[in-house]
């Protein structure tokens, strides 16, 4: 019975991916991609990875979907009246038949290689689960994934935060000189009524859910990324409905919020030289409060970074 469900799920995922590749309109492809992200979340539940499922649904389906949809709307705008240039993409004009066949063969070869690798995975499977379980007590955490992210492999997480900030620096630097330091613009000229209504009703609920996800993340599925993404989504919906304008990208509070989490993480990391065994190690008695403090600051930073990444570069001149 569950095998049937898994088969159907995988079949749907592949069918949706095929639709995303083949459909003519970009918008159709993006809507299908959002549905794909939600189904992929289900697949992660079937793989017993609830933390990943939450992240995939929130980021892969949700925030990426908003980002792509708003980009699609932007790309279609100025050329809309010019029908000659507004034709949907059809065929594979650029490569020609031979090139397309070669690309298909190469892609199929990569798929076949990966499939063989999956079938040839060694049994019994190598695993770090026992090691992770053995050290879990010293961190005071109950969720092994959070322990890996914030304790065992904290360096990865720290560098990932830096990557997020670097991406934001890259996005912001695409602003023309005259708008540098100004605010991005998100809201349409007239926001639709249902969106404004949602933007008033959803955020209180969303903020509670985000705080809950952050708090239970120590012991149950949930955590910094998921909570930060939900917070970012709430901020985005308020900005999209035009209830609040996006802040100037040069605004001091915004910039403090962006770097606060990673900076605190880094500071605690260096503190580890003096109060524990070295870089990014925590003294055992206060490991959990330290981790929770870092997570709280990171959640806010992630929320601000993700929302600003979706909002894009500055489009208005800065306010004096």
């Amino acid at each position: 019975m569950t095998l049937l469900f898994d088969l159907a799920l995988v079949a749907w995922l592949i069918a949706l991916a095929g639709h995303i590749a083949m459909t003519r309109e970009d918008r159709n492809a993006i809507v299908a991609f959002i549905a794909f992200g939600l189904l992929l979340g289900l697949a992660w539940v079937r793989l017993s990875a609830l933390d990943v499922a939450l992240t995939e649904v929130a980021i892969g389906g949700g925030v990426t979907g908003v980002l792509l949809l708003s980009a699609e709307a932007h790309l279609r705008k100025p050329l809309a009246q010019d029908s000659a240039q507004d034709r949907p993409h059809d065929g594979r004009r650029r490569l020609g038949n031979v090139g397309t066949i070669a690309a298909a063969l190469a892609s199929a070869a990569v798929t076949a290689g990966l499939a063989l690798a999956v079938l040839a995975l060694p049994t019994p499977a190598p695993t770090l689960a026992p090691v992770a379980a053995a050290a879990l007590d010293t961190t005071g955490l109950g969720n092994p994934v959070t322990a890996v992210l914030l304790a065992y492999r904290a360096l990865d997480t720290l560098l990932e935060k830096v990557v997020l900030l670097l991406a934001l620096v890259g996005v912001w630097s695409l602003a023309p000189d005259r708008t540098w330091g100004g605010a991005p613009s998100l809201a349409p000229a007239v926001a639709p009524e249902p969106l404004v209504y949602l933007a008033r009703v959803l955020p209180p609920i969303g903020v509670v859910i985000a705080v809950y996800m952050f708090w239970v993340g120590a012991d149950a599925p949930g955590g910094t990324f998921q909570a930060g993404t939900v917070l970012a989504a709430m901020w985005l919906i308020v900005m999209l409905a035009g209830l609040r304008q996006p802040p100037d990208t040069a605004h001091r509070v915004l910039r403090l919020l962006l770097v606060g989490g990673p900076a605190l993480f880094l500071a605690v990391g260096f503190l580890g030289f003096f109060i524990a065994d070295g870089f990014l190690s925590y003294p055992e008695p206060i490991a959990k409060p330290l981790i929770l403090g870092i997570e709280a600051a990171l959640t806010l930073s992630i929320a601000a970074t993700l929302a600003m990444l979706v909002a894009g570069p500055a489009q208005k001149a800065p306010e004096p």
Partner: peptide
């Protein structure tokens, strides 16, 4: 195994950025 799961979470965030 929580280690690959954590790697995937990191990967999803980096792919988004």
């Amino acid at each position: 195994d929580p280690v690959p799961q954590a790697l995937v979470i990191t990967g999803i965030v980096v792919a988004f950025s």
